[in-house]
C-alpha cells in the first residue's frame, strides 16, 4: 500500500467524527460483514484508523475507493468549507438543459483536454444535484488528492457552488463547465458562506419570500396584555412599526444562514458639518464587513430593536432580494452595483 494512499485514508478518518464513522462506512459498503463486525466503534479513533488501514491492505483498496468514501462524507456534511456561488449566463440559442450522462461525459472530456493530470469523480445526490470532486495536478505532477475542489451543480438551474478553488484553477473549471452545459459564460454571483443549503436557497428563492407591498399591516397583536397608559401605547406603536418594517425587509420566517456581508464603499463623504471633506472630489474609500452566526437574523433583530433605523436601507435589504453578500457601492449607480470579487482574506 502506497504511502500517499495511507495518508489519504488517515486524514479522511481524522476528519470524520467517531459517532458518524459507523454510518458513513455502512453507506460506503466496502467492508465485508465480518470486517464490519470486527470494528468496535467505542474504541479510540487511532485504534479504528489502524484497523481500517489493515483492512485497506486486505481488500486492496485504491485511491478510487477512498475518494468515494470522502465524497459520501462531504455530501452528507457540506457545511465545512467556504462555498462560493457562480452563475452560468447567456445560454446558447438552441439551449436545452443537458441530461446527466451527457454532462458527466462532456465535463470530464473538456477538463481532461485542459489539464493533463486531473482526477474527476461525480455522484448524483438525492436532490437532483451533481457533485463533482476534482483533484488537480499539472503537466508534471499527479493529481493531489489531499486538496480536492468540490463543485455542486443542479442541471436545471444556472448556478454552480464551489469550494476550495484556487485562482489558477478557476478559469479551467469555468471553461469546462461552460462547454459541458452549453452556456457562454460563468459569472461570480458575489455570494459566499459556509452553509451550502442557505446559499442555494437564497439564489433559488427557496425561502419564504417577502412582498413588501402586500405585507399585512398593521401586524396582528401578538401580546394583548399592554396596559392603557399613553406612553406604553405609543411605545408599542413604535415597536410594532419597527417590527413591521424589519419584516418587510427580511421576512418573518426562518432566514438562510449567512456568515458575513461585505460592502466596498467608494462614495463621496457628505457631512454638512465638515466642509473640507464634503467639497473633496475623490470618494471616501472604506470596506465594511458585517459578521454574525446568522447575519440576516442579526440584521432583522437590529431593525426591529431600533439599532438600525427603519425603513431598512436598500443596501441591507438587497442581501436577500438580490441573493448576494458582496457589494461594491459607488455614487454613479443608485443601487448596489458589483464587480468581480476580490480574493478575500
Amino acid at each position: 500500500m502506497g504511502d500517499s494512499l495511507k495518508r489519504l485514508l488517515q486524514r479522511l478518518i481524522r476528519r470524520i467524527p467517531t459517532q458518524m464513522l459507523k454510518l458513513t462506512l455502512e453507506k460506503w459498503g466496502r467492508l465485508t460483514k465480518a470486517q464490519q463486525q470486527s470494528m468496535d466503534f467505542t474504541q479510540p479513533k487511532w485504534v479504528l484508523t489502524e484497523r481500517l488501514l489493515g483492512i485497506c491492505e486486505e481488500n486492496e483498496w485504491t485511491v478510487k475507493h477512498i475518494t468515494e468514501l470522502e465524497m459520501i462524507y462531504v455530501m452528507d456534511n457540506p457545511n465545512q468549507g467556504m462555498w462560493n456561488a457562480f452563475q452560468l449566463i447567456d445560454p446558447e440559442d438552441d439551449f436545452q438543459s443537458v441530461e446527466l450522462m451527457k454532462f458527466k461525459e462532456q465535463f470530464k472530456y473538456h477538463l481532461g483536454e485542459l489539464v493533463k493530470h486531473v482526477s474527476v469523480k461525480m455522484k448524483k445526490h438525492t436532490d437532483e444535484a451533481v457533485w463533482i470532486r476534482i483533484a488537480w495536478g499539472d503537466s508534471f505532477s499527479r493529481p493531489n488528492h489531499l486538496k480536492p475542489t468540490y463543485v455542486v451543480h443542479q442541471l436545471q438551474a444556472p448556478y454552480v457552488y464551489v469550494t476550495s478553488l484556487t485562482l489558477k484553477q478557476k478559469p479551467l473549471l469555468s471553461q469546462a463547465l461552460i462547454l459541458a452545459t452549453r452556456y457562454q459564460a460563468l459569472k461570480d454571483a458575489n455570494l459566499s458562506g459556509r452553509n451550502l443549503t442557505a446559499i442555494r436557497d437564497l439564489l433559488m428563492r427557496q425561502y419564504q419570500q417577502v412582498f413588501p407591498t402586500r405585507y399585512p399591516s398593521p401586524l396582528a397583536e401578538k401580546n394583548e396584555t399592554v396596559s392603557n397608559t399613553h406612553i406604553e401605547r405609543e411605545q408599542a406603536m413604535f415597536a410594532a412599526n419597527r417590527h413591521r418594517m424589519s419584516c418587510e425587509a427580511f421576512g418573518d420566517g426562518t432566514l438562510p444562514q449567512l456568515q458575513s456581508v461585505v460592502y466596498k464603499l467608494e462614495t463621496k463623504f457628505r457631512d454638512h458639518t465638515n466642509k473640507t471633506m464634503s467639497e473633496r472630489e475623490e470618494p471616501f474609500r472604506c470596506v465594511v464587513k458585517f459578521a454574525s452566526t446568522n447575519i440576516l437574523e442579526s440584521l432583522r433583530h437590529c431593525a426591529s430593536s431600533g439599532i438600525v433605523s427603519t425603513p431598512v436601507t436598500p443596501l441591507l435589504s438587497s442581501i436577500p432580494l438580490k441573493g448576494k453578500n458582496y457589494f461594491v457601492i459607488t455614487d454613479n449607480g443608485p443601487g448596489p452595483s458589483s464587480q468581480k470579487r476580490q480574493p478575500q482574506s
Binding site: 463623504f269 475623490e282 471616501f284 474609500r285 472604506c286 470596506v287 465594511v288 464587513k289 458585517f290 459578521a291 454574525s292 452566526t293 446568522n294 447575519i295 437574523e297 442579526s298 440584521l299 433583530h301 437590529c302 430593536s305 439599532i307
Partner: peptide, 15 residues
C-alpha cells in the same frame, strides 16, 4: 443584536 453582530470598518489610510 441577537445573534451578536460584529461590524468591521476599515478605512483607506489616505482618506
Amino acid at each position: 443584536a441577537v445573534p451578536p453582530l460584529q461590524v468591521t470598518y476599515s478605512v483607506n489610510p489616505e482618506d
